[in-house]
Amino acid sequence: MSETTDIAIEYRDVTKAYGEKTVLSHFDLRVQKGEFLTIVGSSGCGKTTALKMVNRLIEPTSGDVLVGGRNVRDVDAIELRRSIGYAIQGSVLFPHMTVEENVSYVPNLLNRRDRARTERAVSKWMDIVGLPQDMLDRYPAELSGGQQQRVGIARALAASPDTLLMDEPFGAVDEITRGQLQTEIARIHRECGITIMFVTHDIGEALRLGTRVLVLDAGRIQQYGTPQEILARPATEFVERLVARQRHACDLSDERLCACEHSGAARAEAALLAQGADKGE
């Protein structure tokens, strides 16, 4: 398989400016299929801007964004958004719709004549995000914050997209629920192999979840690598400061981090080993 066909999302010399303020500057990045990319950096560094360019909620001032090898400028925006899962902080469910109606919203648009297919999709993703089927008739106001966030993730995944965009999705829940949701999204990624781009302000969350971590500051890439590389070999002073506290908080040495079950590096290494086994290497 060629290198190009393994690329899920690509940014080519992308710049985004609002008047005299440049949010992203000459941004180049390739995200491999099946990657769990976490994006972290200071407030206003361009991480959410980069994310929203993928589904055309924000258009670049210059440069190109490609999804599945197609320039997003050449794809109808509504069609594009229906093919990409999108989950944000607080889940933002439709309050007047039941859980079932929320989760089935996009599948119903795509499969108007195949109700059975939509019902199967809803049931499948409710199971995957860890919600009981008897919750389908409830309304968002009847759910806890963690349950609402799970429904939001199920809704984002219900059309079985190849890519899931997540913008600070766990920022509005308590720490215990946040930890549970982190475990759930890591499991979903492991089981489904979907490409995930996940924006967070929390370096600990970025290192725990990401198979690769992108560190941004002032619209420029500071480092792009595995969690182990970010911790063990910070590329700039900014990255060094960002990870200093996290390094002290981790009981494992930098060399052993990739063996940690909570680290994306461990999942990345396991995936590489599995690929090698499949090829008989």
Rank of each mutant, 00 (worst) to 15 (best):
L209V: 04
R150W: 04
A270W: 01
A274E: 15
D217I: 01
V103T: 08
G179M: 06
R220K: 11
D162I: 07
D13Q: 15
L110F: 11
Y224W: 11
S2G: 12
A154D: 14
C192Y: 02
I39D: 11
F94Q: 08
D167W: 06
A277S: 00
R117I: 05
R241A: 14
C258N: 09
P234T: 15
R241G: 15
R178K: 12
D74V: 02
A159Q: 13
M97H: 11
A17H: 08
S263Y: 01
T38L: 12
Q223D: 12
R70H: 10
L51T: 07
L37Q: 06
W125F: 12
G68Q: 06
L29T: 09
V65H: 14
A17I: 07
V106K: 10
E79F: 01
C45W: 08
F198T: 09
R247D: 01
L181D: 03
H262C: 02
R155F: 13
L272I: 15
S263D: 00
R212A: 00
T177F: 10
N111P: 01
T163G: 00
T163W: 01
R115Q: 15
E205K: 02
G225F: 03
I185P: 09
D174G: 10
R81V: 07
H96W: 11
T98M: 09
E79R: 13
H96E: 08
N102E: 05
S91C: 06
G85L: 00
T226W: 06
C192Q: 10
M135V: 09
E100K: 12
A270P: 00
G44A: 05
L66G: 07
A87L: 09
D114A: 11
R241N: 15
Q182G: 15
T163M: 00
Q133Y: 02
L110N: 07
N71C: 13
V129C: 06
S2L: 14
D6W: 03
K47W: 03
D134M: 01
V75P: 09
E240F: 02
Y105H: 12
C260W: 10
G204W: 02
